[in-house]
């Protein structure tokens, strides 16, 4: 059974993760585990008060209270859980501006191998509905593989999937087998439909995307992070799925950071094992 981990530190911002977690748990038929890392033992009723939660809000969830440092404890909890997904607020400091990634969130981002959903506190506590999922895709085989959890989610939510390919000037394909925009477009009336279908076919095959899911493809040019954020805003995306290798490479880390910091919606970061 999927485990939806929601780390809360007691700050008001942190609870913005709850509506997102609740929707995920519903769609994936999982169980929410509220995770509060503490250095001292706290009676449950005081804990609820510290977390700013009512008993009703905790109905159907499990409260885990590991000891230790926040980020390592979160990562460890995810490793121990069955089919985990972490839903975490990007930052909880009240005085931090939009687009910040707090140190706990950053450490979890670089450490965990579990899927991680980052939620901007500006989103507030409104319910989260998944109608439109944006899948930025650089054409590489590993990125395509990273879409598996997203396809499961989309299938359950009956959400629309938009694959976004951003062509960069000066970019080299990140890995062998990457399928980029065609170098030659002899006749656009034939080349573009063929290319688009081939691109999506590869996404489906390598990403294990079920046939019943309909994908659309859009191409943009420019700086990938900016284009992804812009498209998400224009399309009203409810979720952006980012696939990355977990390495702070200048180019790819910049794209991921831009998305995380400026996305108008939650971002699911799926880390590819190497």
């Amino acid at each position: 059974m999927p485990t939806i981990l929601v780390p809360l530190d007691g700050s008001p911002h942190a609870t913005v993760a709850l509506p997102v977690a609740q929707t995920l748990a519903h769609l994936l038929e999982g169980t929410i585990h509220v995770l509060h890392v503490t250095r001292r033992a706290t009676p449950p009723h005081e804990l609820l008060r510290d977390l700013g939660l009512s008993p009703e809000e905790l109905r159907g969830t499990i409260l885990d209270v590991p000891a230790g440092s926040a980020a390592p404890a979160i990562v460890a909890a995810a490793e121990a859980a069955e089919d985990p997904t972490i839903v975490l607020c990007t930052h909880t400091g009240m005085d931090k501006p939009f687009g910040t990634l707090g140190h706990v969130a950053e450490e979890v981002l670089y450490s965990t191998r579990a899927p991680l959903v980052l939620v901007q506190p500006e989103r507030g506590h409104r319910p989260w509905v998944v109608d439109h999922i944006l899948l930025p895709h650089d054409g590489s085989p590993t990125t395509a593989e990273g879409f598996r959890p997203a396809s499961r989610l989309a299938l359950r939510a009956r959400a629309e999937l938009l694959v976004l390919h951003v062509a960069e000037t000066g970019a080299r394909p990140p890995e062998p087998g990457t399928f980029t925009l065609p170098r030659y477009v002899d006749q656009p009336q034939h080349e573009w439909p063929s290319w688009a279908a081939e691109f999506l076919e590869r996404v489906c095959q390598l990403g294990g995307i079920p046939e019943e899911l309909e994908l659309r493809l859009q191409v943009a040019t420019g700086e990938p992070g900016e284009e992804i954020v812009r498209t998400a805003r224009e399309r009203g995306s409810d979720l952006i799925v980012v696939v990355w290798r977990g390495r702070p490479e200048p180019g790819r880390a910049r794209t991921t950071r831009t998305i995380i910091h400026r996305a108008p919606c939650p971002v699911l970061v799926y880390r590819i094992s190497e």
Partner: peptide, 9 residues
């Protein structure tokens, strides 16, 4: 170097 046709860029 580029990976896209020039008219797309």
């Amino acid at each position: 170097p580029r990976t896209a046709p020039i008219d797309v860029i």
